[in-house]
Measured scan of single mutants.
Amino acid sequence: DEDELTGILKKLSLEKYQPIFEEQEVDMEAFLTLTDGDLKELGIKTDGSRQQILAAISELNAG
């Protein structure tokens, strides 16, 4: 699971946030449920980064 998540972050060039997800024990299943508020709480402060992550999440959820 973590590897898939790392792959997604790398694709977005946001792998610098990978340790945050690891630290908070966010797995792929949890990742797919994250909201903008969750990402802010995790410490992802950049709007653009959150938008990219949320776009990836909705794409993955759309299947």
Rank of each mutant, 00 (worst) to 15 (best):
A55F: 07
I20H: 08
E2Y: 14
T35Y: 01
L12W: 12
T46P: 12
L32A: 11
V26P: 03
G37N: 11
K10S: 09
T33Q: 12
I44Q: 02
A62H: 11
E2M: 15
Q52E: 15
Q24P: 00
F21D: 05
S13C: 12
E2P: 15
I57L: 07
I8V: 12
N61P: 04
Q18W: 06
E15Y: 05
D27S: 11
L5P: 03
E29R: 13
Y17E: 13
L32P: 08
K45D: 15
Q51A: 11
K10T: 12
E15P: 01
L60M: 12
E4H: 06
L14D: 01
Q24T: 07
F31N: 04
A30C: 13
L5N: 00
K16I: 05
E59D: 11
A56Y: 10
F21M: 05
P19C: 07
N61A: 09
G48R: 10
G63E: 08
E23L: 05
P19S: 11
I8C: 13
G7N: 11
D36L: 01
E4G: 07
G37H: 11
T6E: 00
L39E: 02
Q52C: 10
S49C: 15
Q18G: 11
E15K: 00
E22S: 12
F21S: 02
L9H: 00
G43D: 08
Q18V: 10
T33V: 08
L34V: 05
F21Q: 01
T46C: 14
D38A: 04
Q18H: 08
V26F: 09
A56M: 08
E29P: 11
L60I: 11
K11T: 04
M28F: 10
I8R: 07
L54A: 05
L14Q: 00
F31S: 03
A62T: 09
L39Y: 01
K10D: 02
D1N: 15
T35L: 00
S13V: 03
A56Q: 10
E25P: 02
D38V: 00
D3W: 11
L12Q: 03
S58I: 03
A30T: 10
L60Q: 10
G48S: 14
A62N: 12
I20V: 15
E23H: 04
S58E: 14
I57N: 04
A62Y: 05
D36R: 01
R50E: 03
S13F: 02
I20N: 13
L60C: 14
A30K: 13
D47A: 12
A30P: 01
I57R: 07
S13A: 12
R50A: 04
K16A: 15
G37P: 13
E2D: 10
E59I: 03
K11E: 05
D38E: 12
V26R: 02
Q52D: 15
G63A: 13
G63V: 10
Q24L: 06
T35H: 06
D36Q: 03
G7V: 08
A62W: 04
N61K: 14
I20G: 04
S13G: 14
G63C: 10
L39M: 04
G48F: 06
F21K: 03
T46F: 05
A55N: 14
G63N: 07
I53P: 04
T46H: 15
Y17C: 07
I20K: 11
E15H: 09
M28I: 08
G7Q: 15
M28S: 11
D38R: 11
I53E: 06
K10M: 05
T35F: 01
K10L: 02
L54D: 02
T33W: 04
A30H: 14
N61Q: 10
E4K: 04
T33G: 12
K40L: 13
D3M: 15
E4T: 08
A56R: 09
K45S: 14
E2Q: 15
E2K: 13
I44F: 09
R50I: 06
K10E: 11
A30F: 07
I44V: 14
T6P: 08
E23Y: 03
A55D: 12
L14T: 00
D3Y: 15
D38H: 05
T46S: 14
F21G: 03
E25M: 13
T33C: 10
S58L: 06
E4A: 03
Q18R: 13
Q51N: 12
E25F: 09
K40D: 11
S49E: 15
S13Y: 02
D47F: 09
Q51H: 07
N61S: 09
L54Q: 07
L9K: 00
T46L: 10
Y17L: 10
L14K: 00
I53D: 06
E59L: 07
L39V: 03
G37C: 07
V26D: 01
T35K: 12
D1M: 15
I20L: 10
K16N: 03
Q24D: 05
E22G: 05
E15I: 06
S58P: 01
L5F: 11
D27V: 00
S58R: 14
E41K: 10
L39H: 01
Q24Y: 10
S13I: 08
A62S: 11
D27C: 05
I53R: 03
D1Q: 13
P19H: 14
A55M: 08
K16T: 09
Q18A: 14
L54I: 10
D3V: 07
T46V: 10
K11L: 05
E23A: 12
L5T: 02
L9G: 00
E2I: 15
K40P: 01
S13H: 15
M28D: 04
A56G: 14
N61Y: 05
A55G: 15
T35W: 00
L14S: 00
Q52A: 13
L12C: 13
I44G: 02
I57M: 03
E4N: 00
D3H: 15
Y17H: 03
D38G: 07
F31P: 04
A55S: 14
K45P: 12
G37Y: 10
S13P: 01
K11M: 08
L32S: 09
E22D: 09
M28P: 09
G48D: 13
Q24E: 13
L5K: 00
D27I: 01
D47T: 13
K11V: 02
G48T: 15
L12I: 15
S13N: 14
F21E: 05
T46E: 15
A30L: 11
N61W: 03
Q52I: 08
L39P: 01
T35M: 02
K16L: 05
A55I: 08
E25L: 06
D38P: 02
A55Y: 10
E59T: 10
A62F: 06
V26S: 02
I53Y: 00
G37Q: 12
S58V: 06
E29G: 09
K45W: 08
Q24F: 07
E29H: 05
D3S: 14
D27F: 00
L34K: 06
A55H: 14
I53V: 11
F31G: 04
G48L: 12
F31K: 05
Q18I: 12
Q24K: 12
G63R: 15
F31R: 04
L14I: 06
A30G: 11
E41T: 13
S13Q: 14
T46Y: 08
L12Y: 15
E22H: 05
D38T: 05
P19F: 07
E29K: 15
E41L: 08
Q51V: 07
L14A: 00
I20P: 02
L39S: 01
G43L: 02
K10F: 00
E29N: 06
I57Y: 01
M28Y: 10
Q24V: 04
S13R: 13
I53A: 06
D36I: 02
G7A: 14
S13W: 04
M28H: 08
L12N: 05
E22M: 11
E4V: 08
V26M: 13
G7C: 11
T35V: 01
L34A: 05
I8T: 12
L32V: 11
K10G: 03
P19A: 11
D47V: 12
E15Q: 13
S13D: 15
G7K: 14
F21L: 08
E29V: 06
K16V: 10
E29F: 02
R50Q: 02
E22W: 01
D47P: 13
I8S: 07
G43R: 02
L60A: 09
L9Y: 00
E4C: 13
L42S: 06
A55T: 14
L60S: 04
I20R: 12
G7W: 13
M28K: 13
P19T: 10
A62D: 14
K45A: 12
V26L: 09
L32W: 03
G37K: 14
S58T: 12
T6A: 15
V26C: 05
T35I: 01
A30S: 13
Q51F: 03
S58N: 15
K10R: 06
V26Q: 02
E2C: 15
Q52G: 07
T46D: 15
K16R: 08
I44W: 02
L32C: 09
I8A: 15
A62Q: 10
T46K: 14
N61V: 05
E4S: 09
A62G: 14
D3L: 15
